[in-house]
Structure formats: C-alpha cells, structure tokens
Write a protein that binds this DNA or RNA. Structure first.
Lengths: 232, 232
DNA sequence: TCGGGGCGGCTTACGCTGTACGGTACGGAC
DNA sequence: GTCCGTACCGTACAGCGTAAGCCGCCCCGA
C-alpha cells in the first residue's frame, strides 16, 4: 500500500519545482488570505505532502521571500511595459506612472504589503526596484543626496502602498470604518464632524477614495521633491 | 501538592489584572522581541499558568490590542506634556513637535509598528490620537477636506514611524545593509554609487541617519500641506 | 542488459503554538 | 454552615513548522 503514487504510469509524479510551489503560494494567498498559506495547505494544493516542499524551498521563510520575488517580477514587468516620458523631460510624470503601475500590481495582491513589511532583510528584487527608481531620479537631475532623501520620503509609497491605520482594504464592509467612528463619535468629535462634512458635500461613495488619497499623498511628495531639485 | 499557591497565607494569590498582564507583555516585547511574546512566556513572567491569563484577556489578539492601547497612552502622555505653539499661531511646528514626540515613544518600543500594522480594526486609542491631529489642523485653518487628505498623506508618519523597506531598525548591524548592497553592486549600480557618494562627502556614521530622514519626509509633507492650506 | 545512485516523494515524530474544558482552593454573602 | 463566584491550575487537543529516515522510480554508466 505504501508509496502507491497516484495513477497508472505516474510519469514525473507530482512534478514539483520552486516555481510551481511559489505560483501556488501566490494563488492561495490571493484566494484565501495570507493566514491560509501554511506548508500543509500549500502541499495539498499541489497534491503532495508537506515535507516534499522542502526539496524545493529551504523553509517557510524562503516561501515568503519567493512571494516577494514573484510580486516584484510582476511589478518590473508592468513598469517595463509603460509608456512614460523620458525622465530627462519630465521625471515627475515618469515616476508617478511607475509608482501607480506598481500599485496596480499590489492591489491585485492585498497580502503583499504585510509580506514586504516582514522581510526586513535586503531582498535583491526590492533593491533592484529601488535602484530603478533612483536611476529615474538621477536622469531627472537629482543629486545622489537628494535621491537618497527622496527614497526615504517615499518609503513604501514608491512601491505603491502606504500605511493606512484604518481599514487597509477589504477588511470590513466599505463603510464599516465610518460606522465604527460614528459609534465613538463622542470620543472623536473632529473625525465624526469630518465624516459628516464629507457626506453632505461630496459624492455618496464610501466617503473615502483610497486611490485618490494615495495619489494626493504621492503628488504632495513629488511636488516637494521637484521644488528641492529645481532649487539645487 | 496540587494547588499549593505560592507562599504562606497567599492572600489575593498572584493578583493578576488586565493592566498587570499588559504591562508584562510590553516588557517582554521590549526585552526579548515580539516573537518571544507567547501566552506561556507571558504567564511565566507573571508566575502563573498560561490559562490563567484568559480570565483577564479574551485571547492573544486582545493582548495585542492592549499593547496598542498601552503605547497610545504613552504617546498621549508625551503629547500632553509638550510645549508647542498654539496651532492658530503655527500649526506646522505644533504638528511637528507632536509627531516627533510620538516617534520618541515608538523608538522605545521597536515592535510597535508591526503590531499597529496588524491591527486593522479601528482602535479607539488610535482613532482618538488622529482626532487630536485633526483638531490641531482645524485650529490651524484646515478645512475638513484638506484635513482628511492630510491624514492620508501622513499615514503612519503621523504616529511617528514610516515604512522602511530596508533594515527598519536594529535588524542587523548598523552598516549591514550597506554591505548587502555592496554585495550586489553589479545588479544595483545606482544604489551602490549613491552609497559611495555619501561615504566620501558626508560623515562616517553609518551613512544613513533614520531620524534625519524621517524628519525630512515629514517636513516635505508638512510644507506641501501648508502651501495648500494657504492657497485655499 | 543490467546495476546503482540519487532524486523526489511519503511517513513518522517532535516541540511549539493558542486555547477549550474541567477541576479546585479561596473569600464573602446569607 | 452552606453556597457561590472568582481566580487559578492541569490536562488535552488541533494545528503549526520541520528534522529524520525510508522507499520507489528514473537515468546513467558499464
């Protein structure tokens, strides 16, 4: 009974590979959330036992590193297929396009930010991306010093996400946070008033457009950087 | 033997309380890192069995929520003891002081950002803090709309931390990331050049002053907001 | 044609996690 | 004196990551 291998001739058995493992890991995280990604669930999705994975990845940390790699590859691809102005002509627009392209990718993988956050070690894929950002700024007329400061000022925003302290994304219902704030209106009068103000003068839509807010913050920073660049 | 209770008359036994539990949790995270904070280690530090904790906190999530509460209380205290200008006179300086005071607290608890990140649900303590930030901006002449956008633009920076993609803090040695970049210099020529440039013209110190970079980014955003406020 | 690695999978097992359940000692109310 | 709520302990369980060992298949060299 032992070692029956599925099916008749079996061929290359399950035919695992690092790539197939990582692809499956991304699929699980996309569909069922990062918490559902365990070595066992990952193995099961590949029709294999958990320990078999260790022939292709060192450990779970390596799987998470691989996730970052996959996402960064998607981003690099998106950035490559971009028609943005030459940085020498308009670095600001080129950068904006780049960041928003990265954001598009990240929005397809809501778990990505939290994985990036836990990977403190310098990843080659991430470093290469930032190298590209820095290259863009250099061509746009930045000194290394200002470029360095710009990278810090942008932080994760350069990759397309920012730290939202409330309802990062589809955690609750769209207007769940609005309801939460309403529930503690007495404790947070200004927030409550802000929501009330937004409700009766703006559109009806969930009072908070994260994409628009992201772009606002991004432009604020890019404008500030441009002023410093022009003055230098 | 069973149930010997420590000591003679025992009195109120171990004398746990939600407060004592949370205080101990903060101490463990401070001293041994967030990963070392388990229900068992927490119980042991209080001279108690793991399950006893559940009489004072619902579960581990509740402990983490409590951690946020404790840190926010520290921040509120630090902010309260601040001598900053009245926002009506100079909102920008008042805000700057406030954020840097919060940052001081967070630097004492390096684990705090990662806990904040995982607490997506709207926490009262955090909401109250942002309410205070918004109040400050209102007194400084912000519309609710601009205040709202400002909160988003600041994001976690309002609380004193920003998302660093490389070596958030004491992960490796001070210059570890520099060495890492050097190791892949061919793949990231611009980053390598930037480091080389910084090394020979700036001071010798680890080439990257996170506090200074944080303040740079903060000022960039505050300046941008001031321009928008003045123009509105 | 045959023999033998070694690769790739399975099985088992260990220590760790959070936590459900059921006891048990104590203090205070009646 | 009885009773009950509070606070704590002991045990147990499922699920986690992963170390160690076994076994069958494929490919390569003879």
């Amino acid at each position: 009974m032992a070692g029956k291998r599925t099916g008749a001739s079996t061929g290359t058995q399950a035919g695992l590979s690092r790539e197939r493992v990582l692809r499956s890991a991304v699929a699980i995280a996309d569909e069922r959330g990062l918490a559902a990604l365990t070595m066992r669930s990952l193995a099961e999705s590949l029709g294999v036992e958990a320990m078999s994975l260790y022939h292709h990845v060192a450990n779970k940390e390596a799987v998470l590193d691989g996730l970052v790699e996959v996402v960064m590859a998607e981003i690099e691809e998106a950035v490559a297929g971009l028609d943005a102005p030459e940085p020498e002509d308009d670095w600001r627009t080129a950068m904006r396009r780049r960041v928003l392209a990265a954001r598009d990718v990240l929005l397809r993988h809501p778990w990505a930010p939290s994985v990036f956050e836990t990977r403190t070690g310098t990843s080659l894929a991430v470093a290469r991306y930032f190298d590209g950002v820095l290259a863009l700024m250099r061509r746009g007329g930045f000194s290394y010093d200002l470029g360095h400061r710009a990278l810090h000022a942008l932080g994760s925003r350069a990759l397309g996400f920012s730290q939202e302290l409330f309802t990062p994304d589809g955690a609750g219902s769209p207007a769940a946070s609005e309801a939460a704030v309403a529930a503690m209106a007495e404790q947070v009068p200004h927030l409550a008033a802000m929501i009330a103000d937004a409700s009766h003068d703006g559109a009806v839509l969930g009072w908070c457009d994260y994409q628009a807010e992201f772009e606002f913050g991004l432009d604020l920073i890019l404008d500030g950087l441009e002023r410093l660049r022009a003055a230098s």
